[in-house]
Design a protein around this nucleic acid. Structure first.
Lengths: 148, 148
DNA sequence: GTGGATGCAAAAAGTTTGCAGGCGT
DNA sequence: ACGCCTGCAAACTTTTTGCATCCAC
């Protein structure tokens, strides 16, 4: 977390933006959980959390900071379908992974497969496309739910 | 289109729902284009289109019918990020494919790679997950935009 | 004729923006 | 002190819903 905070500082400085308590708190909150959170989840968490509840943090600031964090590559959106709302996850210290979404219990499972990455990259290149990122979401039933 | 309309009829009958002019028009409109359309695009199209502009079709009906069509497996959502809105594409007569989204010009390119499908299926199985569908979106720069 | 479907408008949900005052640099 | 940031509330966008009426069966 310490180095994430430092990178955030650098990022802000590089854009001539200011390091405010609100921005620090929001960054910390989204790096404090390994869940996938919506803007509203985050807002609620911040109202409750010891360190940040002394601060006033408005929804507007949460939204503004979230897009700042996306721009800086600190977090990314999940895009798993509108009914889930927009969910974010932190990126630093978390290597790339894809998601399996259980349509029964709503659980989101992260996974990574190197061969898959390679085959995917090759397939895309073949079309003359220059990829910068991708999002793979698999929908279905997780192991636990298959047993019911 | 003829057989799609018939399948839609069957689908409605199987659920004891009614075949209305509005539903026919919406199905036809979304199968008439190979673009990826939002609810609003579709609404506009329907207001302009010769065959349907004699009908009154409200936004509410467009939304209601879109979710009906998703349920019936006639169309599917793209999930390519909130800024694009929710986009739909028709499914029947279109075999499975993934999408490459050009972040410069906004173009959406469909592609399919059999090896990729196989490797992906294997990777997911390995995690004990029972997949029913998936969505892969690759973001980057298309061939045309790379030349600018 | 009956119950599902529609249009309309209002309501909800999610997100953005204008503005006056606050605060980081 | 300057100008970016923030909170607040209002505005916006997208989607859903209640209700009276309509129409497919």
């Amino acid at each position: 977390m310490k180095d994430v905070a430092r990178k955030f500082e650098d990022f802000l400085r590089s854009r001539d933006l200011r390091l405010t308590k609100q921005r620090e708190a929001i960054l910390e909150a989204i790096y404090a959980t390994h869940k996938h959170v919506s803007a509203d989840d985050l807002y609620d968490r911040l109202q409750r959390d010891e360190r940040s509840k002394s601060l006033r943090i408005s929804r507007a600031t949460v939204y503004r900071t979230l897009s700042l964090l996306v721009d800086g590559g600190f977090i990314q959106a999940l895009d798993i379908g509108r009914d889930h709302g927009t969910l974010y996850e932190h990126v630093l210290g978390h290597s790339h992974h894809d998601h399996m979404v259980c349509t029964e219990c709503g659980k989101i499972i992260e996974f990574h497969d190197e061969e898959l990455e390679i085959v995917q990259a090759r397939a895309v290149e073949r079309h003359g496309f220059l990829a910068s990122s991708h999002r793979l979401n698999v929908f279905g039933t997780c192991r636990a739910c298959q047993q019911d």
